Simulated assay, not measured.
Amino acid sequence: MTSVSEIVIGIDGGGTGCRVSIVDADGRVLGAARGGAANFTSDPVSTKRNITLAVHEAAAKAGLGSDDLMRASVHAGVAGVLSTSDAEAIAHALPFHSCTVTDDQVTTVAGALGGRTGVVISIGTGSFVAFATNEGTRFIGGWGLQLGDQASGAWLGRAALQRCALAQDGLVEPSDLTNRLMSRLGPKPRDVIAFARNASASDFAALAPDVLDAADAGDINGRHVVQDALAYLEVCLDRISLAKDDIICLTGGLGPRFAAWLRPRTQAEIVPPAGTALDGAIWLAREKYKEWKCNS
């Protein structure tokens, strides 16, 4: 039987749902569960409720009671955590004596690198670049579409619609991509304007696969958008001094698609991510457990 002092819990919370995994100190899964959306900025009440329900479901599968959970080593990476007060609000709502809460960027990096040093380029609906060293982690980006998120799915989709507007005005040559997007969202310019006015980041991001497919096929406007995205990513990498053994991981739903477009010396450093954001939460919780064990 697993000692309660060996219980390690990782939590990954995002806009599409949350995941909880309970493992022992050796990494053996004791119980796991999925729950509803968990973005603290979008809906703090539902975030706390959905994570709590998933925790109790995973605990029931693991045969753990409330006293066991109180003694567990826990790390939760939750989307939309923007401040210490956000993290504390989540931690206080969960059934643990001690729970470290961060945003999901931290757990994404930990999961991708798995304790190694290097760079994580995360590209999904949003985007960020992180550089992890033995001294700490530096984050670039993650500002949201209104202020940044360059190269993200939302940014790609919006940039493609900007190319559509330029093509409609006769300032750039139209292409299969711009014609297809106009037909999909239009056909009249006012229809595209109405879409853009009401579109969320996810709505823009839904166009990103078409943009990347078009760029791969040599579409002039698709390539223009992707080249602008690459220019941003390369600037980020140029601000980072990689050591000899540092690696680069591309994560997120769209990250791996950029591998073939990056410059050769960057491609040479790319390796597959070691794991997911949930794996990162577990890894950080296990590191917390190891530290506790060494100090006890």
Rank of each mutant, 00 (worst) to 15 (best):
M1R: 08
T2S: 02
I9L: 04
D12E: 10
T16I: 03
S21D: 15
D24P: 10
A25S: 09
D26H: 14
L30A: 04
A32Q: 14
A33Y: 13
R34L: 03
A37P: 13
A37I: 06
A38P: 08
A38R: 13
T41N: 11
T41H: 12
S42E: 15
P44E: 10
I51S: 01
T52S: 06
T52Q: 10
A54C: 08
H56P: 00
A59K: 04
A59P: 02
K61D: 14
K61L: 03
A62G: 07
L64V: 01
L64C: 08
D67K: 11
D67L: 07
M70G: 03
V74I: 06
G80F: 00
L82W: 13
L82T: 08
E88K: 09
C99W: 13
D104G: 00
T107Y: 00
L113K: 03
G114R: 11
V120R: 04
I121L: 08
T125D: 14
S127P: 13
S127D: 15
A132N: 09
T133V: 09
N134T: 14
N134G: 04
T137E: 11
T137V: 11
R138I: 07
R138S: 07
I140A: 02
W143C: 02
L145K: 12
L145R: 15
G148Q: 11
D149N: 03
A151N: 13
S152V: 02
G153S: 06
A154L: 03
W155H: 00
G157C: 03
A160V: 01
L161Y: 01
L161R: 02
A165D: 14
L166N: 09
D176C: 00
R180K: 06
L181S: 03
G186I: 04
K188Q: 12
R190I: 10
D191M: 03
I193V: 10
I193L: 05
F195Y: 13
A196P: 06
N198D: 14
N198R: 02
A199T: 09
S202N: 13
D203K: 09
F204Q: 11
F204V: 04
L207H: 02
V211H: 01
V211D: 00
D213R: 08
D213M: 01
A214F: 00
A214Q: 09
D216M: 04
A217R: 05
G222N: 02
G222Y: 01
V225E: 09
Q227W: 08
D228N: 11
L230S: 12
D238T: 15
D238Y: 03
I240L: 14
S241N: 14
L242D: 02
L242Q: 06
I248A: 03
L250I: 05
T251R: 11
A259Q: 15
A260G: 09
L262K: 02
A268Q: 09
I270C: 04
D279Q: 15
D279E: 10
G280S: 10
A281D: 12
E287I: 06
K290C: 02
K293T: 07
